[in-house]
Amino acid sequence: MLEKIGDEVLYYLEQAGRMGIFLFTCLLNAVRPPYKISPIVRQIHFIGHRSVFVILFTGTFTGMVLALQGYYTLRRFGSEALLGSAVALALLRELGPVISALMVVGRAGSAICAEIGIMRNSEQIDALECMAIDPYKYLMVPKFIAAIVAMPLLTSIFDVAGIVGGYLVGVSMLGVPAGSYFQEMYRSVVWADVEMGLVKSLVFGLLIIWIATAKGFFLHLERSGGFGAEGVSRTTTSAVVLSSVAILVSDYLISAILL
């Protein structure tokens, strides 16, 4: 029994150590020359540009439901005029970064984990190493930089879409005056709220790409067996779950620190 617990602890410690060294190596390679722009642009296109539609869509609906729920809650206290402020603060501080990060996990994180996992399984990563091409520099760094650049931008797009969605429901459907919707928003939102959202989105971007790439890269070392199509699917699932949990846990921690 004790031996089993020890084995478990050692396994997780080893995994954590591996992931830590992986992150360090990626970040170190990111600041080391040579710098190649075109792979980074390609990855920003994949992680960022191709997520814009889903982010616009979910952002709008999140803003709409926030306005709907917020309106009926605020009306009980006779403060419907504060709707703009409630929608904007909830989006900027919490929902914008968290939901857009969860969307990016589902859309790009899973794809990146599967891509790297398949490359590992089909010896493509070994082939890179044998060609004296550093897989960290060649494969990981463009993805890391792209995620760190794209995530705050996507979050900002989500926030704007949400505010517009809130306007559609609150002002156009429920009759909150347009002036007070924006006036209250302008009055209550301060830079610290925007900053909190940006810090969160940066951290989430890093977490998503770290977990997705590391899980794929170390697929062959998975205890459950990372071989074949099933191994890739299992590892991708676990990367998505782990990323989602990490986003929610770190969301709490960042809020607690910054508030």
Binding site: Q124, A127, M131, A132, D134
Partner: peptide
């Protein structure tokens, strides 16, 4: 990596980069 610059490897399943075309595969190194 310096040592590996002298290497060429033909893998069992060729290990070509499946998201690149043939020209880019050979051009990569």
């Amino acid at each position: 990596n310096e040592v590996r610059k002298d290497y060429g490897v033909l893998f069992q399943n060729a290990a070509l980069f499946d998201s690149m075309n043939i020209f880019d595969n050979v051009a990569l190194p």
